[in-house]
Simulated assay, not measured.
Amino acid sequence: MDLKRWTHVVALADRRSFIRAAEQVHLSQPALTRSIQAAEAELGLQLFDRGTNEVVATPAGEFVIARARQLVFNSRCLERDVELYRSRSLGDTAFGVGPFPAATFLSQLMAGMRREFPGINLRVEISNWQLLLKRLLEEDIEFFVADTRDLPPDPNLYVRALRREPGGFYVRAGHALSTRKSVTLQQLWSHGVLSVRLPTGVRTVVSRLLGLAPDAELSLALECDDVEVLKEVALACDSVLAAPHAAVAEEVAAGKLHPLEVTGLPSQSSEMGVVTLRGRTPSPMAELIISRLPGKG
């Protein structure tokens, strides 16, 4: 069976609709239907159940689709690698960053890239690791940089560690806690904490120190993937900001934010990593950006 037909099978498995899959592979619906029927006839297996609401893979289909997906992926990688080998030119790229890298080093990195390569187009998605992983697996971005502690083990992923980014808690100037030499976690939490989504390990440590029951949910006053938004909120009210030191260095130096010393709390830091698809050769521009990330190069 030719590769194009495998592509049709994978598209239908992903989209679960002949109409949507046909749009994805730029075919008419009847043409896609004929291609799937031909694939099933050639294999002697029914790959899909045609339900009333959506098309679902049969057990045989799931077995075949998993292998077809790898074939399609390898084919795209081969085409891309051949083109890179032929041209070896820097090209456009798209990648993702989590909230902490976006707030600490992204602006400086992108400014440097724009100065050095003004003719290159870059696309950066800022989000949590869950959504960035989805984009990576869909091959919509080449890599992403984020805290990798909660990243599920997956043989299709390759993770390169970056330096750790230490962080802490901060309040606005004039806050009731700002004059204290140290505060307890309970005192801090009573004012409401602003943070990105905390990794599972951090949530566990904080929940234990707060004396919460094992099955109790740790509550945040505001959870947001944009650290700049969190800073603005902290500067305008009495909530406590959790953030990496590098993200608030300017505000601390200007006396706008005050760091808190929290009694009994171990030092906290994010564990950043670069996540790529194993077996896929990054574009020259992607490799260049990765080489310039903090802790790389």
Rank of each mutant, 00 (worst) to 15 (best):
I290K: 00
A242Y: 15
F63K: 15
G61R: 00
L265P: 01
P166C: 06
L90K: 03
T33R: 14
D226I: 03
S270Q: 10
V97S: 05
S182Y: 03
L32V: 03
P282T: 03
R76H: 14
A236M: 03
L133G: 07
S17H: 06
D238W: 04
D92Q: 13
F117V: 00
L122N: 04
G264W: 00
I65P: 03
L210W: 02
E228T: 15
P282D: 02
V233T: 04
P30F: 00
L188H: 02
L230I: 04
E251Q: 12
L27P: 01
S270N: 09
S178V: 08
A254M: 08
P259W: 05
R123T: 11
H245I: 10
L177C: 08
R203A: 14
I65C: 04
V202A: 13
L71S: 10
R67C: 04
R67F: 10
V206E: 04
L212P: 02
V10H: 00
S291F: 01
R115C: 08
L218W: 02
S190Q: 14
T58G: 02
A176E: 13
Q108A: 12
F100D: 15
R86E: 15
P153R: 07
C77Q: 14
P284I: 01
I120Q: 05
C77H: 11
Q37K: 15
C237A: 10
G98I: 05
P214G: 06
F100A: 14
L90W: 00
L212V: 05
R160Q: 13
R292E: 02
G211A: 01
Q187C: 00
V240L: 03
L265R: 01
E79G: 15
D14S: 12
V275A: 02
T52R: 13
L241I: 05
E23V: 12
S269V: 06
V183N: 00
T58P: 00
Y85K: 15
V159W: 06
I126V: 09
V124Q: 01
Q24E: 13
V202E: 14
D150R: 03
R114A: 12
L188P: 01
A60V: 12
S107P: 07
P155T: 02
D2H: 10
L90P: 00
T204H: 15
R15F: 14
I126L: 07
V206L: 11
A246L: 11
V229A: 09
T148L: 08
F143P: 04
E217H: 15
V205D: 11
V202S: 14
K4Y: 11
I19K: 13
L90Q: 00
G279S: 04
Q70F: 03
E23I: 08
A146D: 07
T148F: 06
T263S: 08
P282I: 04
A253W: 02
R163M: 09
S267A: 06
L131A: 08
V233Q: 02
K256V: 07
A234E: 01
E79N: 11
F18D: 06
S75I: 09
V64I: 10
T7A: 10
V72Q: 02
M1F: 09
G255A: 06
E165M: 09
R163I: 07
V240G: 00
E116R: 12
R123W: 01
D2Q: 09
T204C: 12
A216S: 15
S75V: 12
S178H: 07
S89I: 15
S283T: 14
D2T: 13
K134H: 13
L84E: 10
A216P: 06
P152T: 04
L47D: 05
L288G: 01
V229T: 14
G96I: 05
